[in-house]
């Protein structure tokens, strides 16, 4: 049986998640043993229109990108959203909190009106085309990348957690950030990262997006119990949680 053909594409992002794939090191040999990578701008010069699996990194911020993404979708059987920008819009969505003209001016100054710098509201990949699998995170977790890819190659739904980061944080025996009177987004954010940030003495920044049904109402009252406010919480949610729904 021929190996599935894989193409990797990037849109608005820092390309750090692709870098995580490069960083698979020995495992990358395992990867190319089971798939044919036919296009991957960051790692090779070949291009192809013929692929089974498209891995799409980055968020969609321009009309022409939407068109390009639709073409990719039409060519692949399985489309994987790679990393926070692709899965939830990521930090790029922060701009959706502002007037687009202000955003352009703030970034490009006097050049803001140049046509090639045009930009729309940021969208996650699944706001433009259907997505078959998600590899969450900013950046993605290399181990999870492997697990998701192998599951898909076997025709299996990838085991992406639908529970909050707290599950993995407790498993790591971290002291809860709230015990330090710090706001942590762990209780409402999808796990799968192995609670990487809390395990390094940071709060959860929320890069994997909300669980399916976050108890946002509880969050409001719980802040009180720690002498914190909803405003404090909202501020922490701007980075990855902007315009995702579920927002306070």
């Amino acid at each position: 049986m021929s190996k599935p053909r894989v193409a990797i594409f990037d849109f608005a992002c820092c390309e750090g998640c692709q870098l995580q794939i490069v960083n698979l090191e020995e495992e990358i040999l395992d990867l190319i043993h089971v798939v044919d990578v036919v296009e991957w701008r960051e790692a090779m010069s070949e291009q192809s229109h013929d692929y089974d699996i498209a891995i799409v990194e980055g968020s969609i911020t321009r009309h022409e990108d939407e068109l390009r993404l639709e073409v990719i979708r039409s060519r692949c059987k399985i489309l994987i959203a790679l990393g926070a920008c692709a899965t939830i819009g990521g930090v790029n969505k922060m701009k959706n909190n502002f007037d687009l003209n202000d955003v352009k001016e703030c970034v490009y100054g006097k050049d803001a009106k140049m046509p090639h710098l045009n930009t729309d509201m940021t969208k996650a990949v699944d706001e433009v085309v259907p997505v078959d699998a998600y590899i969450h995170g900013c950046p993605i977790d290399r181990k999870e990348f492997g697990t998701v890819i192998r599951a898909l190659l076997l025709g299996k739904r990838p085991p992406v957690p639908d529970y909050p980061v707290c599950v993995e944080c407790k498993a790591k025996e971290n002291v809860c950030r709230y015990e330090y009177n710090e706001i942590c987004l762990g209780p409402i954010i999808r796990a799968g990262c192995g609670a990487r940030c809390p395990s390094s003495n940071f709060r959860c920044f929320g890069c994997r997006g909300y669980v399916d049904h976050p108890n946002v109402e509880a969050a409001k009252e719980v802040m009180d119990k720690y002498g914190l406010t909803v405003e404090d919480l909202k501020q922490k949610m701007i980075l990855f949680g902007s315009k995702q729904g579920h927002t306070l």
């Binding site: 707290c166 599950v167 407790k170 498993a171 976050p214 009252e221």
Partner: peptide, 13 residues
């Protein structure tokens, strides 16, 4: 339960 995050911390520990 109104305030429960369904985070399973109580189960885990």
């Amino acid at each position: 339960a109104r305030l429960c995050y369904s985070c399973g911390s109580c189960n885990q520990v």
